[in-house]
Simulated assay, not measured.
Amino acid sequence: MAIRLFIDGAAGTTGLEIRERLTGRDEFELLVLDDAQRKDEAARRDALHAADIAILCLPDDAAKEAVKLAEGSGTRIIDASSAHRVAEGWTYGFPELVNHMPGTGRDAIANAQFVSNPGCYPTGFLALLAPLVDPGISVRGGDPINGGLLPFDFPYSVNAVSGYSGGGNALIDRFAAEPNIAFRAYGMAGGHKHLPEMQTYAQLASPPVFSPSVVPAHRGMIVDIPLPLAMMGARGWPLALWNLLDEMYEDSDVVRVHEMSDNPSELLLMSDADPWDGMDLYVFGPFHEQGADDLPTHARLVARLDNLGKGASGAAIQNLNIMCGLPETTGLRL
């Protein structure tokens, strides 16, 4: 029997791309509300209670309201908003972080009732940094024999750029109405909504300094973490960082770690890029073995992904597949 699936917020950017990835999939029976019903509370409650699984593609407050509407139903929920990413009782839907910290990974997702999709920027940030950080290593605590390669209490920074679709229909409309916008830096005062999950799942002592920006491309994202190795008490040279990431994702069909010897001289976002649900990771820095005389002064960890793919809709489909016991990459654009 087909799995009954309801997408609450199906008319938004993320919802539309989820529906596109479900095209032709007879494992699911899609419950659809017409335009007159999709904002009607009673109709939404009925659909949420009728569904086996619901995917919430809503603003945070509306997502919280949807969870309340679903109370008593037993419906399993994937929330694509940021409302529940660090909330008690919710599983963080980042299957590649398996074994990194309790409550993450494929088994946790497969058995969860409530799964929260990662944010687009945190997806790149955590994929790069979380495997390299050990919460027991302190810059001030000396150089332990065992543990992670990077300290948990360093003041990390992250520079990131996204296509404008990450801001939803409002930002899409703004870029259409103001075609002279070439670059938009935002969140200048700090306090971005992604910071709690970035700190929590990388197990950092404090949130990173986050510098997000948007360019006139519909989709695409680059996340860049600079590492001043010589001043941060790092135990890992660039090649050691690469080795750990490569081992972490060696069996993944979604995340690819590029060879350091093959690193490109530039990374591009294309204005006409096709949907893509994978993620490319890079370690930039001096390429030689640990043990030379001088620790390299710096490295850069960089992720390239589609903010609407692995950063949103693709991640929701990946989690949906895992929750339903289906092959993880079914329906993904890889």
Rank of each mutant, 00 (worst) to 15 (best):
S116M: 00
S116W: 01
S116D: 03
S116C: 05
N117E: 03
N117F: 00
P118S: 04
P118Y: 02
P118R: 02
G119A: 04
G119N: 04
G119W: 02
C120R: 00
C120L: 00
C120S: 15
Y121L: 01
P122E: 05
P122K: 07
T123D: 01
T123S: 15
G124T: 01
G124M: 02
G124P: 02
G124C: 03
F125K: 06
F125V: 02
F125H: 14
L126G: 00
L126A: 04
A127Y: 03
A127F: 02
A127W: 00
L128N: 12
L128K: 10
L128M: 14
L128Q: 09
L128C: 14
L129Y: 11
L129C: 06
L129M: 09
L129I: 07
L129R: 05
L129S: 06
A130V: 07
A130Y: 09
P131D: 07
L132T: 08
V133M: 11
V133F: 09
V133W: 10
V133H: 09
V133C: 08
D134R: 05
D134E: 04
D134T: 06
P135C: 13
P135Y: 11
P135K: 14
P135I: 12
G136N: 15
G136L: 11
G136R: 15
G136Q: 15
I137C: 01
I137K: 13
I137M: 14
I137Q: 09
S138V: 01
S138L: 14
S138T: 12
S138F: 06
S138K: 15
S138G: 09
V139C: 12
V139T: 14
V139S: 08
R140G: 10
R140T: 15
G141F: 04
G141K: 06
G141A: 08
G142C: 10
G142V: 08
G142E: 08
G142T: 08
G142S: 08
G142F: 06
D143Y: 09
D143V: 15
D143H: 09
P144T: 14
P144C: 10
P144D: 12
I145L: 15
I145V: 15
I145N: 06
N146C: 08
N146I: 11
G147F: 02
G147W: 03
G147H: 04
G147N: 05
G148N: 10
G148L: 10
L149K: 09
L149G: 09
L149T: 12
L149H: 11
L149S: 10
L150C: 06
L150P: 05
P151S: 10
P151M: 06
P151T: 14
P151L: 06
P151Y: 08
P151K: 05
F152V: 04
F152Y: 15
